[in-house]
Simulated scan of single mutants.
Amino acid sequence: MPNVVSKNNPYLPQMGTIREIIQETPNIKTFRIVLDDPEQMAAFRFEPGQVGQLSVFGVGESTFVINSPPTRREYLQFSVMKTGEVTRALHRLCEGDPIGVRAPLGNSFPVEALKGKDILFVGGGIGMAPLRTLLLTMVDRREEFGDITVIYGARSPQDLCYRYEFDQWRAAGVNLVLTVDREFPGWEERVGFVPTVLAEEAPSPYNRVAITCGPPIMIKFVLAGLKELGYEDDQILTTLERRMKCGIGLCGRCNIGDTYVCVDGPVFSNTQLRQMVSEL
């Protein structure tokens, strides 16, 4: 699979340019990046769920999921929450600025194994980023999948990412259930925590795979809620967030026992998570 991780030096980023920046929420920005080498950009391939390292030169690099789908390759999209030194530096960048990219890294969602299945996405806040790449892949290959339901929530309407796409998702046949934690003026969708809305919607586990990502406390209760609804461990996929430094399994920063999240993840089934739980 062609990528922008150098064969000679896997730590050497490829140069890119920020084409567009979208202010998703008060503390989340989306960056649309094009590699400076047209041949490299044309050859770039990745799978939904894979991640990349973004470099701010003179500051450092951090790992973010590629949340544009592989079916749409005019740019690479990354959404960044401002939480630390590197992310603050990224938020200071402007359209047209240079940026380093090392990608793709890690594993991916099992797209081919999901064919013919009904799909349930359960996301919270920035957790919609890794779900978006798989969701849009399925939208672009709509005839290959069954029902697609998305339950997506945040603290407030202003904390929901990709609001400008919601109508497009619904037009593509996605059953989109939006919720916020409490009432807000003008909000006409659901009100309640994501796990509560999941229990209320109660999507059947028959021939369905559930994929969840969001804050750890949300995932904890979502996993419990899915079990209550009858989902088996191998019907549940999620992503793990641990500090990834090298991205290639050498530094040991992201290991859980003998599992390296940057290589063996970030996508795991609940079956795998239960096998790893003693190491967490």
Rank of each mutant, 00 (worst) to 15 (best):
L237S: 02
E200V: 06
L250R: 14
V174T: 02
S108F: 13
R274G: 07
G249L: 04
C251M: 11
N67D: 14
R88F: 10
I236H: 03
G146L: 09
I256K: 09
R73C: 07
P157T: 08
C94I: 06
G52D: 04
T259D: 08
S108K: 09
Y164V: 11
D181A: 10
Q235Y: 08
L226M: 09
A199N: 11
V261A: 03
A129Y: 01
G249H: 04
Y260W: 12
L131P: 02
V209Y: 04
L160S: 01
R19H: 10
N8S: 12
V180R: 00
F109A: 11
F121R: 02
K245G: 05
P130Y: 04
I33R: 00
L120G: 05
E95D: 11
E189D: 07
T271G: 05
L178P: 00
A43N: 14
Y11D: 12
L12A: 14
F268G: 03
N9M: 11
M244D: 04
G214W: 05
G225N: 06
S156H: 15
E74Y: 12
Q168G: 13
N255L: 11
D167C: 08
L120E: 04
G247I: 02
V51S: 08
D118R: 15
E189I: 00
F121N: 01
D233E: 10
P266M: 04
I99A: 00
M244Y: 06
E279Y: 12
A89P: 03
P130G: 07
S278T: 15
G49R: 03
V122S: 05
V56R: 00
R142Y: 11
F184Y: 15
I217H: 14
G225S: 07
G106I: 05
N8T: 14
M138W: 04
I28V: 15
K117Y: 07
M138C: 09
I21P: 06
D37S: 13
R190W: 00
A224V: 12
M138E: 05
F184E: 13
P205M: 08
E61R: 01
Y162F: 13
C94A: 14
R72V: 10
G58R: 00
D264Q: 08
A42S: 14
V263F: 05
R243Q: 12
P185T: 14
E241Q: 13
T196K: 12
V80Q: 04
N9I: 11
R155Y: 05
S269V: 10
C213T: 03
N207H: 15
G214D: 05
R142F: 06
W187T: 01
